[in-house]
């Protein structure tokens, strides 16, 4: 975890705030005057992880950029729930173009700022997993390859939620979406397809790649800080549970994200220039089943008949992540 080094103070570095910490060590979210980049009145569902994740990321980025920042947004829930004409929830300079071109627009903004001598203004681009791993993927890969000075954030809710929960290249195997129904021998999304874009980003050997979730704020903020302290192409992939698409209780958004990491289903790591440099260790390991049972999109694995074969495959995927990234602390 990149947010340790905090002396034991009752909640250590797990909670959002800590009254016993030095002010400069406190999280951006705990500040009374935080940027609130995405303000109240937005139309995201109750308990939306994406709305939460976006505020976490942009408030930290705003703090790091001291407010000198432009945000480029792809089409998706994040854009639709925040900007129904003529209202906006954004309290950052914010630009929307298309579903598939946010990385390219951000590249253009960065070039424009450089050309006009405003190179102290930072550029952050953001989009859903559909925008990032599917339709905008060529633009993203190009932005990586050119090492454009952009921090790109993907909010991964595992599907095209804005248009009614269709499968994306980031939908996990076995999950039910409206286009991968829970029918047949292999119900839900298929195994063996889909894209692991964080690893693909690492393969581009760009300066910085990291994953994070809305369940570990201090880790997430540390990664945004680190990324904002660098130049060139940077990529941050944030897991953001979606109560509507995942069929989960709105109160469980943070809990589900936590179980995703604690089960090994979603590995949290950092990489620089092609090498993994740190991983967030699992604190209290749980079987992947604990993660699955809170979500309606996996309900068909437990009723009417329990599909141990499928659950085992998902567990095997988590185990593979654990082995690949060394997520479990070696007991000496």
């Amino acid at each position: 975890m990149s947010s340790t080094g905090v002396k034991f103070y009752q909640v250590g570095s797990f909670a959002v705030g800590n009254r016993l910490l030095d002010p400069e060590l406190r999280s951006a979210q705990s500040e009374q005057g935080r940027a609130n980049s995405l303000t109240s009145g937005h139309r995201a569902c109750q308990g939306c992880g994406e709305a939460l994740g976006a505020r976490y990321v942009l408030d930290a980025a705003m703090r790091a950029a001291q407010g000198r920042m432009v945000t480029v947004n792809a089409t998706g829930c994040l854009e639709v729930f925040s900007t129904p004409y003529p209202e906006t929830s954004w309290r950052v300079a914010w630009l929307h173009s298309l579903f598939g071109n946010a990385p390219a627009v951000a590249t253009g903004v960065a070039a424009g700022l450089r050309a006009t001598g405003k190179d102290d203004v930072r550029v952050v681009a953001q989009g859903g997993d559909g925008a990032t791993v599917d339709i905008g993927f060529a633009c993203l890969s190009g932005m990586f390859e050119r090492n454009d000075d952009v921090l790109y954030i993907c909010y991964d809710n595992g599907g095209y939620m804005n248009t009614g929960v269709q499968r994306s290249g980031a939908t996990p195997p076995a999950a039910r979406t409206t286009t991968t129904q829970a029918v047949g021998d292999e119900p839900g999304n298929v195994f063996g397809q889909g894209k692991d874009v964080p690893r693909i980003a690492v393969a581009h050997e760009i300066p910085y790649v990291a994953t994070a979730t809305v369940a570990d704020l201090r880790d997430l903020e540390a990664k945004v800080d680190k990324a904002m302290g660098m130049h060139g192409a940077r990529y941050l992939h944030v897991l953001v549970p979606c109560p509507l698409g995942w069929g989960s209780a709105s109160k469980d958004t943070v809990k589900i994200a936590r179980l995703a990491t604690e089960s090994g289903h979603f590995p949290v790591f950092e990489a620089e220039r092609g090498e993994v440099t740190s991983v967030r260790k699992i604190r209290h390991q749980v079987p992947v089943e604990e993660y699955l049972t809170l979500q309606g999109r996996y309900k068909h694995l437990f009723s009417p008949v329990r599909r141990d074969d499928v659950i085992d495959r998902l567990q095997a995927m988590a185990d593979r992540n654990i082995a690949r990234y060394g997520l479990v602390e070696e007991v000496l």
Partner: peptide, 19 residues
């Protein structure tokens, strides 16, 4: 005990921190 968690985790900024 003022850990700021509620203030942080609200997706709607609907928790007001009074200081």
């Amino acid at each position: 005990f003022e850990c700021d968690n509620c203030y942080g985790v609200c997706p709607d900024n609907a928790v007001i921190k009074l200081g």
